[in-house]
Simulated assay, not measured.
Amino acid sequence: MSNFDISKIKILKNEPLSKYTFTETGGPADSLAFPKNREELISLVDYCHDENISITVIGNASNLIIKDGGIRGMVIILPEFKNIEVEGQNITAEAGATIIETTKVASKFSLSGLEFAAGIPGSVGGAVFMNAGAYGGEISECLESAEILMPNGKIVIFSNNDMNFSYRMSAVQSNGGIVISATFALTPGKHDVIQAKMDELNELRRSKQPLEYPSCGSVFKRPKGHFTGPLIIKAGLQGHWVGGAQVSEKHAGFIVNRNHTATATDYLELIKLIQKTIKEKFDVDLETEVRIIGEDK
Score class of each variant (00 low, 15 high):
54 S>W: 04
239 G>I: 12
43 S>Q: 15
212 E>H: 11
89 Q>P: 09
237 L>F: 03
216 C>E: 07
57 V>R: 02
142 C>L: 12
95 A>R: 08
153 G>D: 00
91 I>L: 04
98 T>A: 04
228 T>G: 08
112 S>C: 08
192 D>M: 06
4 F>E: 11
112 S>K: 15
122 G>E: 06
23 T>L: 05
135 Y>G: 04
209 Q>N: 03
256 V>P: 10
97 A>R: 00
5 D>N: 15
200 E>L: 08
11 I>R: 07
17 L>N: 05
39 E>Y: 11
279 K>F: 12
198 M>D: 08
227 F>G: 07
96 G>L: 04
115 E>W: 01
189 G>Q: 03
171 A>K: 15
222 R>N: 07
206 R>K: 14
92 T>A: 03
297 K>L: 13
197 K>R: 15
106 A>V: 03
269 E>S: 13
132 A>P: 10
189 G>I: 07
284 V>A: 10
266 D>W: 03
257 N>D: 06
85 E>D: 11
39 E>F: 12
201 L>V: 13
169 M>Y: 14
21 T>I: 07
126 G>M: 11
263 T>I: 02
256 V>M: 06
119 G>P: 02
237 L>N: 08
1 M>Y: 13
88 G>M: 04
292 I>S: 05
46 D>G: 14
176 G>M: 08
29 A>W: 00
99 I>V: 14
120 I>M: 07
66 I>P: 08
218 S>R: 08
5 D>P: 00
27 G>M: 00
218 S>M: 03
10 K>I: 10
44 L>E: 02
61 A>P: 09
95 A>W: 01
228 T>E: 09
33 A>E: 00
275 Q>V: 12
232 I>T: 01
173 Q>C: 02
54 S>T: 14
119 G>Q: 05
54 S>K: 12
90 N>D: 15
7 S>K: 14
112 S>P: 00
97 A>V: 10
271 I>Y: 12
249 E>K: 14
120 I>Q: 06
278 I>D: 03
141 E>A: 15
188 P>I: 02
39 E>I: 13
211 L>R: 05
184 F>L: 03
75 V>G: 00
286 L>W: 06
21 T>D: 07
294 G>V: 00
275 Q>Y: 10
223 P>R: 05
67 K>R: 15
262 A>Y: 00
91 I>M: 08
68 D>F: 05
116 F>G: 04
86 V>F: 06
92 T>Q: 01
63 N>W: 07
130 M>W: 02
268 L>D: 02
181 S>E: 07
205 R>V: 14
5 D>A: 13
297 K>Y: 11
76 I>P: 07
50 D>Q: 15
290 V>C: 03
143 L>D: 04
11 I>S: 00
159 S>I: 09
91 I>Y: 10
5 D>W: 03
133 G>D: 08
125 G>L: 08
169 M>T: 13
216 C>T: 03
